[in-house]
């Protein structure tokens, strides 16, 4: 479906994507995850043919890039943008037309989608009269209006309230059932955990980890404890079997060294405080990401990445 081979892209001497290879099978929901500035958007822009890779090649639908190929991809960019003065329906039809859809078909489909995403009644209003969330939904409609087989969504949930987030998630699942391939790119790794079958974690332009989500979870599941604890956190960190403690405010997520008995850590915790909740659990994707980056001797500098993006 989508094949990326050793793709590299530099901007002014900064490596945005560093010989990245990906293979995405048809009909799945694929998560492209990583912190801001990891190279996700650059990768997607190269898939869409907006920028060209310096090295490597990209094949979509087993074909090299062409206009026809692009007409079968739907792309929701991270930077949303619409013509503010245009009418909603006219705008949607225009965006479908430049994807090669005849205007009659486009307008029929647009009306259906507008209803489905609860925008009915706004067809003849100008885009600027829509709220931010409505514009988001409108932008999503424009992504799928040309009936694409591959849908690439870059940070699709930013700016959506929980209800609309759920609406969008339902549609994504449905698209998968229809046999479409969906690529979700986001820095909010935990938000898409439940959606994705396969994921790829990237950092600083390079692949950190790739595979089936279930396998990855399995691999990292044994050595994490969720703990609600009243007491001194430092005492927990002193236990030799504890690799890392992440504080989520209400709860702590403790990553253990391999071959550590979680019960050892529990009794250690009880000795130094009060345990209100203890659960042997999965590591969150975020923690897996950090663990993998540390393992590879790399630094995790979300902040640095964020400021570069801004």
């Amino acid at each position: 479906m989508l094949e990326i081979n050793n793709v590299t892209k530099q901007f002014d001497g900064v490596l945005a994507v560093n010989s990245l290879s990906l293979m995405i099978e048809p009909g799945c929901i694929y998560g492209l995850l990583g912190p801001n500035g990891a190279g996700k958007t650059t990768t997607i822009r190269m898939i869409m043919g907006i920028i060209e890779p310096d090295e490597g090649e990209i094949k979509v639908f087993d074909e090299p890039f062409s206009e026809k190929v692009r007409e079968r991809i739907g792309y929701l960019p991270e930077e949303r943008g619409l013509y503010r003065k245009m009418k909603v329906l006219d705008h949607l039809v225009f965006l479908a037309e430049i994807k090669g859809v005849p205007s009659k078909v486009a307008s029929k489909r647009a009306v259906e989608w507008v209803r489905r995403l609860e925008l009915a009644g706004w067809e003849d209003k100008s885009v600027e009269s829509l709220s931010k969330g409505m514009q988001q939904k409108m932008q999503f409609i424009s992504t799928v209006l040309h009936d694409p087989r591959l849908v690439i969504l870059d940070e699709p949930f930013t700016g959506l309230d929980p209800l609309n987030t759920q609406l969008l998630k339902d549609i994504i699942v449905e698209m998968k059932k229809e046999g479409r391939t969906v690529v979700l790119s986001t820095h909010l790794m935990d938000q898409v955990e439940k959606l994705c079958e396969r994921i790829c974690l990237i950092n600083k332009g390079s692949k950190v980890l790739e595979g089936k989500l279930a396998d990855i979870k399995m691999e990292f599941s044994q050595n994490v404890i969720q703990l609600r604890f009243v007491g001194e956190r430092e005492q927990l960190e002193r236990h030799p079997g504890v690799q890392q403690v992440s504080d989520f405010g209400q709860e702590l997520s403790i990553t253990l060294e391999p071959d550590t008995d979680p019960n050892d850590v529990l009794s250690h915790a009880i000795r130094h405080g009060r345990v209100e909740r203890f659960e042997l659990g999965e590591m969150s994707l975020h923690d897996i990401f950090i663990a993998k980056v540390r393992e590879g001797g790399g630094e995790v500098d979300d902040e640095d990445a964020q400021s570069r993006q801004a």
Binding site: R45, M48, G49, I50, E67, R70, E71, I73, Y75, P77, E79, R80, G81, L82, Y83, R84, L95, I98, K99, Q139, S142
Partner: peptide
């Protein structure tokens, strides 16, 4: 204007 309101990226994903 199109650069500023970022329509450009949507357009360039469909057009040369």
């Amino acid at each position: 204007e199109e650069k500023n309101n970022r329509v450009i990226e949507v357009l360039l994903s469909s057009l040369r």
